[in-house]
């Protein structure tokens, strides 16, 4: 094991231990558990986006469709068919992955902006269908999920650990993908799709696989969210905010990196909370400003910025900016 790998392992172990243990310490209030659940959910959806947007280079703008489909699958299974939470969430993830496979076959033929617009359109269309399919989804008034018998603190903690499981699973999945031939194939597609095809890579199958895996994780997160929220309406389940946050976090953290989304989620949610508390009314202005600065000065994300061989001095910092800024 190299020195760097050792350091990374230690950081990951400490972070994971903290994430697992802190809900049991009484000094932390239930509110913190809820806040961290939101951060972990954002990290999971960003990690999911990273597979298709970061590694494969296909800027998907409709991942919330999978969040919503996963959520609604859980809501329907639990409220109408009385399925238990865990099997319902797993089924929700699979339904989302299946949906992505069917969608991906046509729209993954598009590239760049065209692909982005198509995914955006599909997400909106999905919301419309869900809003109007009243018999199945309850229409605009949504679905109420069965109430857990647990008292709220226990329930919140259970939901937190469910979301954490989805996130950790997404990191393990991403790690597995990057170590496999699939991962190299996806990166090849991002770098030069024609060249990838000329090397014998079945690019359609690879892209659809990446899209389905991205949808699987997003759908699992949506499923946990549905039960946690106990009420699911189309506006929440298909909110564009879910997609945008996943993308922004991935970009801040470093698209196409394993730990980028986790770092990005912490940075983004911290920033968001800070701006919301201190600059009410101006929060979006500042958020936009920060995003612009990040993209100009750290286009490869925080991850690259932190892990590159760099001395943390003013001159080294300037040199990094000069080398990497968008001109």
């Amino acid at each position: 094991m190299t020195r760097r790998n050792r350091i990374v392992s230690v950081i990951v172990a400490v972070a994971l231990a903290a994430l697992v243990l802190f809900p049991f310490l009484d000094v932390f209030s239930g509110a913190l558990v809820r806040t961290v659940t939101v951060v972990v959910m954002a990290a999971a959806t960003a990690q999911a986006w990273n597979l298709i947007g970061g590694y494969t280079g296909y800027p998907a703008f409709g991942n919330v469709a999978f969040f919503g489909v996963g959520g609604y699958a859980v809501a329907i299974l639990m409220s109408k068919l009385h399925v238990d939470f865990i099997p319902a969430v797993l089924a929700g993830g699979l339904v989302a992955a299946l949906y992505a496979t069917l969608l991906g076959l046509p729209i993954l033929r598009l590239k760049g902006h065209y692909f982005s617009i198509a995914t955006l359109g599909v997400a909106e269309a999905t919301r419309e269908v869900v809003s109007n399919w009243t018999a199945l989804t309850g229409g605009g008034s949504g679905i109420t999920l069965p109430i857990s018998p647990d008292i709220p603190p226990i329930f919140n903690r259970a939901m937190y650990f469910s979301m954490l499981a989805v996130f950790v699973g997404s990191v393990i999945l991403t790690y597995g993908v990057t170590r496999s031939k699939l991962g190299y194939g996806l990166i090849a597609i991002r770098e030069d799709e024609d060249a990838a095809r000329s090397l014998g890579i079945n690019t359609t199958r690879f892209k659809v696989t990446a899209f389905a895996l991205s949808a699987l994780v997003t759908g699992l997160a949506g499923g946990v969210y549905a039960y946690w929220n106990s009420q699911l309406i189309p506006e929440d389940a298909f909110s564009l905010d879910i997609t945008l946050r996943a993308i922004l976090i991935s970009i801040i953290g470093g698209p196409g990196t394993l730990f980028g989304p986790a770092l990005g989620a912490v940075a983004f949610e911290f920033m968001r909370n800070y701006l919301w508390d201190n600059f009410p009314g101006l929060q979006f202005t500042f958020l936009g400003l920060v995003m612009v600065l990040v993209i100009i000065f750290m286009p490869k994300g925080v991850m690259e910025f932190l892990t590159g061989r760099r001395r943390f001095t003013a001159s080294a910092l300037l040199q990094y900016v000069r080398q990497n800024r968008v001109s």
Binding site: D192, D194, A195, S198, G200, T203
Partner: peptide, 20 residues
């Protein structure tokens, strides 16, 4: 399809190299 042709034993070094 391109990938099938490639697997049948034709390698194409395209103009402009198309490296990753």
């Amino acid at each position: 399809p391109t990938d099938q042709i490639a697997r049948s034993g034709i390698a194409h070094v395209p103009q402009g190299r198309h490296l990753f």
